[in-house]
Write a protein that binds this DNA or RNA. Structure first.
Lengths: 223, 223
DNA sequence: ACCTGAACACCGTTCAAGT
DNA sequence: ACCTGAACACCGTTCAAGT
């Protein structure tokens, strides 16, 4: 725990020229999101406090309410960023293998896991218990973005079905199996639930590759 | 939200005879665990407060500290209960199909999902972000019980490998794939992440059966 | 042995007020 | 338009004290 007396935050009041370095009056919103992500990266637990973020950004504790309705809204905004980034990872897989469905599928699976490795703090809020999925609360943009991310997976599955790689059937149902496997592996890894296995150096990467291949095996068309 | 003025809790001070109905002096520990579970069942979110549990049990807000070191310790105790119950579900699968490895494996997968359906509140604390898996915090009994649960899965996988049902290789690594798939499906379901698919009545059960079969397909030995 | 009451150091959120 | 300060209704946790 840090001592209660902090260095009072740099404040960077140099808004002399164009330099967009001083968010102090201007891009507080982005600064809060960035600070939230950094806090999640270190503390991991759910101490993510609105007051602490304000402190870190060098503003008063009520200033965040000018940019976010509530703590949950801030978390949802971070989750939204995360889904967009995950879509980028998925697009990359498609770009790498435009003419080979199997390679595309496998790379898509690897990219999902890579996203989890690169941005665990994003994954945690995207699928943590902080944003409720009960009907009525689904008006925030994060839900639309999340659904669009799943939609990209369904597209991949449909293409793979047409190519005879993946078994026939409702592509949405097949996509649920694919998602479950990748989500399960990614979440368990991010939550350090494999730590008790005492894996040697580099062994986790082998597990990830296995998970990607097993994901395809789970829904592969029988020959 | 309930009004701030509650009916002051029944207190059930009828400790006249043997009737173990009045936990007031005696089994406060169990009462707190039960109240915690009930709170998780309804509120779902992480408002699970120590003070509120005390209120619900009819004791002062500091009484819980006689039975639990901290809020995290109470949550860990609930998680421990959950792992034991999950083991019961797994044992049931083995008992039903003692002489058919494939049936045992499939039933084990179904039982994992059934546990999630029956006890979502347990699953949420078992794999939520409330108990940290960083080294140094792994002294609570919940970790040993969690590892034992995974151990049961490894046993099943080893048996299935010997029978030629599941592919060869390190049984722990194979078990990770199986666990990932079931965990992913169970968590997404419990978190209501499939709700946006607008599934018709009974369709979720079909998804669950598919997930169980796909879990086997993911690690099945090639013919 | 088990529980209580007051107290400490925190939260999220609201609201009138400042520039 | 954006931010501040005081205030309200909460937390988890500690500790001396009660029976």
């Amino acid at each position: 725990m840090p001592p209660p007396t902090k260095p009072a935050a740099p404040r960077t009041t140099d808004k002399v020229k164009g330099k967009p370095k001083s968010y102090h009056h201007g891009n507080l919103r982005e600064a809060l999101l960035e600070a939230g992500l950094e806090l999640l990266r270190r503390d991991s637990a759910e101490s993510l406090g609105l007051r602490e973020l304000a402190r870190q950004a060098g503003v008063s504790r009520t200033a965040p309410y000018r940019h976010f309705e509530s703590k949950e809204a801030l978390i949802a905004a971070i989750a939204e960023q995360g889904f967009l980034r995950l879509q980028d990872y998925q697009d990359e897989a498609r770009r790498r293998h435009p003419n080979d469905v199997e390679a595309w599928f496998l790379e898509g699976a690897r990219q999902y896991i890579r996203f989890a490795v690169d941005h665990p703090e994003h994954l945690k809020v995207m699928f943590g218990p902080y944003i409720s999925h009960t009907p009525g609360h689904t008006d925030h943009p994060v839900y639309a973005v999340g659904n669009a991310t799943f939609g990209k997976l369904v597209e991949l599955v449909e293409t793979a079905q047409r190519a005879g790689l993946v078994r026939a059937g409702d592509p949405v149902e097949v996509s649920v199996s694919v998602w479950s496997m990748l989500h399960g592996f990614a979440m368990l890894m991010v939550q350090k639930q494999f730590d008790f296995l005492q894996l040697e150096q580099g062994r986790l990467a082998a597990l990830a590759e296995q998970a990607a291949r097993d994901t395809l095996a789970a829904v592969r068309a029988s020959p």
